[in-house]
Write a protein that binds this DNA or RNA. Sequence first.
DNA 1: TAGTATT
Length: 362
Amino acid sequence: MVTQIISTMETQANNGPGSAGILNGTNGEPDDSKTNLIVNYLPQNMTQEEFKSLFGSIGEIESCKLVRDKITGQSLGYGFVNYVDPNDADKAINTLNGLKLQTKTIKVSYARPSSASIRDANLYVSSLPKNMNQKEMEQLFSQYGRIITSRILVDQVTGVSRGVGFIRFDKRIEAEEAIKGLNGQKPLGSSEPITVKFANNPSQKTGQALLTHLYQTTARRYTGPLHHQTQRFRLDSLINMAYGVKSPLSFLPRFSPITIDSVTNLAGVSLTAPTTAGWCIFVYNLSPEADESVLWQLFGPFGAVTNVKVIRDFTTNKCKGFGFVTMTNYDEAAMAIASLNGYRLGDRVLQVSFKTSKPHKA
DNA sequence: TAGTATT
């Protein structure tokens, strides 16, 4: 099998229009193979607006999207730009690929048509010979398919290889074949066998990432000395919950009128009585794209969630900006509210509270 | 023995 070796060492745009071999127009999808670009290695702090501004300077953009973590709203460091004119897409590659932004060198290339077959095609390779360079590693793997990206990790100080790398294939099936063919094999002239396996999927870390993010967010929001105890208390609670430790709020009687009064007085509002299902929480300032999974994942780490609901516009089916979450236990609901109210999700700041009873008109 | 490329 003859395959193309594509070096990513110079962050070259390496896949031309139609290079993925999928004919457009056969499935009713618009042919955007010559206008749709993927942009990689973006600085972590780049916003959607900056992203649009940078690529909009080339020509008219049909659409663009900075891809962000669905739960934390953090940039994932890549995005898509679809131009109106294919010439502008070409121009963007020629002028912006390799552009240095902060510590990153961005890569601009044509996006491959989205498909399940290209997902989860990233491999983690360890025990590589320390003298093997990126090109040699690519040559070793290229017999199994088309390589999209490759990287060898190096010591920050000495620059010497750590014997660890990544290889992303065009297709998952190619990655599978590479594992079969190379895992446990000794490269020519090496005495130690290499390990080849699928790279960890970043989405598997979102639970921990969320807690870390909340920890930082909460720490930033309670910096005043008067709130020091409150801050410590909340951060400890987050950590305890992450390890399944009983919440320190558990000493409070659950569903107790005293507890309700204390919160009511603090908030200055009256609460609906807990239903048999639990405590209803109002979540405001969700994006139009928000769905139920976001609410599950946001509130799940705090305890038992029995129901979530995103309120949608009847005609567009887009979120109207708010939703509800029902949690079984008062203390867990209170902790979720304390932690998530004011939480920044993407470019929005959430408002989270117990659902209040609407004042009835006289 | 861990960076981050599919909307």
